[in-house]
Nucleic acid binder design. Structure first.
Lengths: 217, 217, 217, 217
DNA sequence: AATGAATGAGTGTTCATTCAT
DNA sequence: CATGAATGAACACTCATTCAT
């Protein structure tokens, strides 16, 4: 009767309209936050009936859950592929950082919401899915770094779980203070800003992590 | 009629009740976000009349502005003091990181809100005050690092504006994913979590920044 | 296109699914009232598509009409049979009461809804069918009592239309305050409650009516 | 902050607007049921803002609770006064019936809602208040009948708790089928209908109860 | 003959803010 | 100076019903 009644949401069926809603939701959530975005807003921008959101996703909360799954599946895949590649440790870490920055940059909206909203409220359900993703990501990072340690390239006294915060945190903080850095670095267009991320910022993060992993204190 | 009509808010007068409101607002904003916190919530927790917020601060929006000014003045002062101190470059950077982590940790609520809310909406007014703070901070960082470069301790090809994102970003990302790291690192109490920040996380950031500043690629 | 378009509803055709819907509707209407029951509820409990109710009965309102006809036909028949029986006046009245109490008790759900909902709103259509039933019932009662009066057993100054309110009203009031009387009379199970109705309450009503009909004031 | 926060509701303060809301609510609840009446309806008829109902009473549910208390307090008082009066048993019972019929007739709206809604849903809170009223009433009836039994006027094999259902039930059933009896008894105006209740129906109930209490079977 | 998809209208409630006092 | 009362707008969500298939 209702299109969505599967609680696992793993095999969610996404038709065009659902995707349209999800895309709009991501945009608006990232612009105005979860609470700041009303179902009315979403329905207006997606040009669908206001009842469709509840109809398709059950509730605003469940829309967020669906959005998480919809947007995080790709990153997971890319990381798994990276693990299989045959690269030098430093190269592998550099590529890991690229994947993170690109992946998050593409979905910057959802990740911003995720980090803020999920930790802020008791969105347990949504959080579980996200926590699983983070665990998976951490495992990938762990494996890559351990490989480098085994090859004697990386230092052995690294606290691996703190690597991700540095990678993502640096990117996030930069992105969160977008207009500040736009002015500071004279990045006049959206394109220039994104380009700066893909070149200078990515390189900065790669340098930082390499220095941390390689050089003795 | 209304006590506050000065838009600059620079010379805001803070009586006990205002401070009480600000403290409660910080707590609730950080817990539930700006949109997620209602004036009713604030007035209830602060045990004041619901009309007081609008009466004292003009609007919910202006309450946020006031909160920013109220909470960011201390950090600014500490950084200026640090500049005067006579320390080795690495030591100075380490202390800078300590100041950041401690300062933000103390006011974690407001900073989280700031970063999320301010970039998310068009809260221009509030943003200006915050941008000024960031510019000031950046200047302090710039000076410290330049000093180190002049002394030949730090590399010269550093993009200084990207240092702060790494320092603050790492801390933020860790803090934003509090419950994830609590579980991962087996930090059972609030105290253990905060203690981990003050020791291991701070040390990690210090190591990271030192490696970045000191070692050649 | 739609199977039902006859407004009289006298020759409504009831297939299995329709009956299933009617039974579920009775249950839910009696539990939660007409307004309090949604078509979604009905369709869920009857395990049919949500559109089926409108499809089969035209509207929620017309479903109620159909329910009335479906549930009131039996009582009418029983009363007509009673008229033919050869019994002493008092015995006949007692049996009349038994028929009423049993008949209504069986369909307690629908009768409760009927009495409340029909008088409450302008459900004209549904009401006409119910009014006809009541008129028929009154005629039966009239005949029985007149017979008793002719035989000199019953008083002649009886206002016959007020007999039914006493019979049904007593039963109804008892049933409507079910939980109150369950506690008061220590009727722990559904069975005990129903049994009390069939014995003590029925006897009480019979005594009452007999006293009214037989004894001079 | 909120005008109503006392959960006991015993000392509810009723200003003019609250009373206005309660009166309108009673009218509409009785006409269209609890579920069938929207807060918008109430606010429109009472010519107040839609938010006032929630503001004054907290919720629609709590409005019903308040309505019960507001409307049932008078009946309770009258019954207690009756107990003190020095009357013959039969006279006392007759007066009891008068009080019931008049009291309920005046507040017919609320009583109809009470009987239907309260037993229909899980309105526990509201129900408790109503159950207490019923218990009190029963006690009054008990005392009056016991007095009559002690004076040797009333039979001793009466099931007292079943007296009230007969009194109130008869009245209720008559009132619930208002339009049926209006047509049947040719009661063309509201006044005629009410007059019939106050004379013929009341007398019928008095006769019935007297017959039940006095004459041996 | 039957139903999944879709919808506009409506629900109770909460919101930030205003204003008379 | 401070606040209780009040409000219109907006909220997420559910409703009965329609309609293309």
């Amino acid at each position: 009767m209702y299109p969505i009644r599967n609680t696992t949401m793993s095999n969610i069926e996404l038709n065009d309209k659902k995707i349209q809603i999800l895309e709009v939701a991501e945009k608006l959530f990232s612009e105005k936050g979860f609470e700041g975005t009303s179902i009315r807003d979403i329905s207006k921008h997606a040009k669908i009936n206001i009842a469709m959101v509840s109809y398709y996703f059950g509730s605003k909360e469940r829309l967020l859950e669906a959005l998480i799954l919809y947007k995080t599946s790709d990153l997971k895949l890319q990381l798994e592929n990276l693990l299989q590649e045959n690269l030098e440790p430093v190269e592998k870490v550099n590529k890991l950082i690229e994947i993170y920055v690109n992946g998050i940059c593409l979905n910057k909206g959802i990740y911003r919401v995720l980090h803020f909203e999920l930790n802020t409220k008791k969105r347990e359900k949504s959080m579980i899915a996200f926590t699983e993703l983070k665990k998976g990501n951490l495992k990938s990072v762990e494996r890559i770094i351990t490989q480098g340690q085994e090859k004697g390239v990386f230092r052995k006294d690294i606290i691996i779980p703190l690597i991700t915060p540095t990678i993502i945190g640096t990117f996030f903080h930069f992105h969160m203070n977008k207009s500040f850095f736009e002015e500071l670095l004279d990045l006049k267009t959206e394109e220039m800003f994104n380009n700066y991320i893909k070149t200078s910022l990515t390189k900065h993060i790669q340098q930082t992590i390499k220095a941390l992993l390689v050089y003795e204190n």
